[in-house]
Structure formats: structure tokens, C-alpha cells
Design a protein around this nucleic acid. Structure first.
Lengths: 124, 124
DNA sequence: ACGCGGTTTAGATAGATGTCAACCTAGACA
DNA sequence: TGTCTAGGTTGACATCTATCTAAACCGCGT
């Protein structure tokens, strides 16, 4: 794995999103829970939640790691690990352009998670 | 702590929900992330995600633990521990009536989480 | 070749998961 | 009233996984 634009791909749970009307609509199947729980788990850390927010709210739809790292009092490798967790969860996508790596959100999975938690119909 | 209807209360993060437009709207403050991340963390386990779904989709708005436990291949105490995690996260509420304990969802926090993940405006 | 930006590996510490045993509460029955 | 039984929770423990730092590594630009 080492080509620009594909270097950091790991797995793609986001493309395997199983189904999923809101949790409150009917009981989620075990298989779907097994696929979607890791995404919630990835968001279950304050640092990753902030990272996700910075990525999702980035002006141009993407943000450089060099802008993410200095926003926390953590070492570079630690931030990189958290970003890898978000990648493996299918929440973000990474692309290397030149010397810098840019992260961008994956709307599909985020939308799916939002719908899952919705109580009534009609989520984003 | 041992009165019907209040016995199982632990803490109430759900009542301290800080704010929170969608993640993609603007960067979430560290304090808000610290409060909300535990809720996502609680949902970050397949068993708890299914429990949450069974509780949220219960016909009468609530469900007996005696109906939850046999749905999994796990011991009673284990289910009870998972339910405690959901309680402490502020996602569900428990009440003892007679010999049985009933769980019901807390819409406030669920709605907040759903909005957080929404990409456009207008979630549930 | 050198330096810089990021990721990866390796290893220590802290936290999560699941089971057994003990406890508490509520209803049943004598 | 006293005790027995069943439903759930709590506590303690073994095991597994996550989090973080330090050091090594890879790709790119100069």
C-alpha cells in the first residue's frame, strides 16, 4: 500500500453498510450491529470526536493532518493512530498529495449513523 | 439508592447535554466532546447497540429485562453490566415495578447524537 | 543526500468484557 | 410473621483490548 490517492486505505466498512432504519423502528439485526458498532466506538473518544468534527467541518471539504495535529496536546503518532481508527471505521478517507496528507469525511456512513439514532423519520 | 422508580439512577449526562449543532457545521468544543463521547462509546458495542435498539423499539415504550436477557447468549450479570453502561451514558432509564425492572429510552440524548451526525439541517 | 511530514512498529499502562459468587428486593405460601 | 424462591444488581477477579510514548521507517521536495 503506497500509491498517492490510495495509500492509506485500510478497509471499507462504509461500503458494506448493511441496511438500517432507525434503532427505534425495529430491532437491529446482530449482523448489522456488528458492522455499525465499530463506527460508534470510533466516535466514542473525545479526541476522535473532535478530529471527526474538524474534518467534517473543514471549509474545502478536507483538511491537512498538519492542521489537525497542533490542535491537540498529543504527539504526532497518537493523532495518527486516532485517524487510523476513524479510517478503519469507515468514517473518513485519506489522500496524500505531495508532502501532506488530507482527510475528508465519508458522508454515507455518517448519514447512516444519524438515521439509526433518529426517532422520527426524515434525517438529513 | 433503593426506592421504586428511582433505584437505578446513576448519573444524568442526558440532562447536561451541552449544545451541539452538527459536527459538520463547526468544530465541536472539547468540553462538549468530553460529555458526548461517552454516549457514542456506550453504543460502540454490538450487544449494547442491540439492547439499545430493543429498548428504543419496544412497543409500549419500555421493555422488561426479563425480555432482554434471553435474547443473547450471555449471562444475566453481563447483560446487567451492559445496561448499566447505557444508563450511565444517559441513553436509557430504568424503573422497578414489582418484581421486574423496565427500561425505556431517553429521547433527548438520542436526538442530540443524531443531530450531531447529521450533515444537513433538520434531524428528527 | 538531507530534512520534513506522517505513518508504522513495539512495548508499558490503563480500561473494557465476561463469569462466578454474594446480595437485595418483591411476591408466594404456610 | 417468617421463610422460600425468582428476578436483577453489585462486587471481585481473569482476560483481552485500547491508549499513549519513543524510536524506526517511508515518501516527497529541496
Amino acid at each position: 500500500m503506497s500509491k498517492s490517492g490510495e495509500s492509506l486505505a485500510v478497509t471499507d466498512p462504509a461500503t458494506d453498510v448493511p441496511c438500517c432504519p432507525p434503532l427505534a423502528a425495529r430491532r437491529i439485526p446482530a449482523a448489522a450491529a456488528a458492522v455499525l458498532a465499530p463506527a460508534f466506538k470510533a466516535l466514542g473518544d473525545p479526541v476522535r470526536l473532535q478530529l471527526m468534527s474538524m474534518i467534517a467541518s473543514a471549509p474545502g471539504g478536507e483538511i491537512c493532518v498538519c492542521d489537525l495535529t497542533p490542535a491537540f496536546e498529543l504527539s504526532g503518532p497518537t493523532i495518527s493512530h486516532h485517524l487510523k481508527t476513524l479510517r478503519e471505521a469507515g468514517l473518513v478517507d485519506a489522500e496524500r498529495r505531495g508532502s501532506w496528507v488530507y482527510y475528508r469525511p465519508r458522508p454515507d456512513l455518517m448519514r447512516q449513523l444519524s438515521i439509526l439514532l433518529a426517532l422520527e423519520a426524515g434525517t438529513a
